[in-house]
């Protein structure tokens, strides 16, 4: 069953891959232009992995499930580009995470990390 949580819920999985706290990283939706930190997005937790979607347009991104073989890692239409030849067709901004592989090194991170401490 799909369970809607906050992007914050994906923090552990993200930090397993990226060597810093990710929930304050800022991302912009390529669908509607909304900018949010990952912690404020909507996360859908499945047995297969975790999808983080724009909380405003929330467009389903079923194409993300077509992962070839055991190529796992992080794919994101907006903020992470993969150097691998295979790319899903992305209809909207989303982050798709199908967890745990050493292939992580082949992805490039281009998000901006916000300072950890926020003003009140």
């Amino acid at each position: 069953m799909e369970n809607k949580l906050d992007g914050n819920a994906a923090a552990g999985t993200l930090q397993e891959i990226f060597p810093f706290e990710m929930t304050l990283a800022q991302v912009t939706c390529t669908g509607c232009g909304t900018t949010n930190v990952i912690g404020a997005t909507a996360a859908y937790m499945h047995g297969m992995g975790t999808i983080v979607r724009c909380p405003v347009c929330d467009i389903p991104c079923s194409s993300a499930w077509c992962m070839p073989g055991d190529a796992t890692g992080w794919i994101c239409g907006a903020c992470v580009s993969s150097r691998s030849a295979w790319r899903p067709r992305l209809s909207s901004w989303f982050l798709c995470l199908v967890v745990k592989s050493a292939k992580v090194g082949s992805y490039t991170l281009s998000v901006r990390q916000e300072p950890l401490k926020e003003g009140g």
Binding site: A11, E21, T23, L24, I38, G39, L116, E118, G119
Partner: peptide, 12 residues
Amino acid sequence: IGGYFVWEAQMG
């Protein structure tokens, strides 16, 4: 884990 849902005293 997580840096979003946090509060520190100086955040007021």
